[in-house]
């Protein structure tokens, strides 16, 4: 009898610990910048997202993507940069209803290479903004879309 209740107690404690750690990790991660991702394309979105900081064009950032995308729902986009101490990489699509597509916050690295697939509502400029040594650098690429990515 004693051993049974003890086991139950241990199980309960373990479950509680698990739940607590889950809750903790959840709150620690809950910092998704919803404000940035809800910025509308009709506004001056670069300013809304990055503030007044100057953004310099840089040849050290390369965006790889098809010039003509047949299907706007799946457009492979990769961003490569050889800037020093890259802290974050943001990818924006200027004609999407919500221009900010993705933002990667990373431990400072001298080389960053990210590839993903994005939805493009229509032909757009894809803008990559890289934060390096505390400064912002950007590069753009035009992508033509024949079928939009927002159809049902």
């Amino acid at each position: 009898m004693l051993s049974l209740s003890r086991r139950k107690f241990i199980q309960g404690a373990a479950a509680y610990g698990l739940a607590a750690s889950f809750f903790l990790s959840n709150t620690a991660l809950a910092k998704w910048p919803s404000k940035l991702f809800s910025v509308d394309k009709k506004k001056d979105f670069i300013k809304e997202i990055f503030g007044d900081a100057a953004i310099e064009e840089s040849a050290l950032i390369q965006i790889k993507a098809p010039e003509i995308a047949e299907n706007g729902a799946v457009v492979p986009v990769s961003v490569q940069s050889s800037l020093p101490n890259v802290e974050s990489v943001s990818i924006l699509v200027d004609q999407n209803p919500r221009p900010l597509a993705a933002q990667f916050v990373m431990r400072p690295a001298n080389r960053s290479n990210i590839a993903t697939r994005l939805k493009l509502a229509e032909s757009s400029q894809v803008i990559a903004v890289v934060k390096s040594d505390g400064k912002l650098y950007s590069s753009t690429k035009n992508i033509k879309v024949t079928i939009g990515g927002c159809g049902g």
Partner: peptide
């Protein structure tokens, strides 16, 4: 890294780094 994604990332997302 921590990636923050918006709605523009495609269905069944692919990511490489």
């Amino acid at each position: 890294f921590t990636a923050y994604w918006g709605i523009a990332v495609s269905k069944n997302p692919f990511l490489s780094f």
